[in-house]
Amino acid sequence: MPFELALPDSCKPWKVKIFDNELLCEEPHVTIVFKTTRWRYSLRSRKMLDKQPDPKGVGDEILAEIRAKHDVLCREWDARFPTNPVTSAEEERS
């Protein structure tokens, strides 16, 4: 079951999700969903991952919710993807 961050009613129909199968070749992230558009937010750098779609399209309220629940999101990611945990940057250790 994907993890979906509980958002206040004022944020509907936005969603913030961690899927059960993700693009793991990139750093741990959450996906921000609004209708046909998706953005990705890095759980390591705490920044938006992509230049497109324009990160400014994500409302401050959504980002504030993500930042407030950062620890929960990291735990959920790590539980699903132990080979690519948020807190262990394999490349840096090599």
Partner: peptide
């Protein structure tokens, strides 16, 4: 502060 509904609507309309 960005409004959730305003930003989403503009993104949405650009893509259809």
């Amino acid at each position: 502060m960005n409004s959730v509904s305003e930003t989403s609507a503009s993104t949405y309309s650009r893509r259809v």
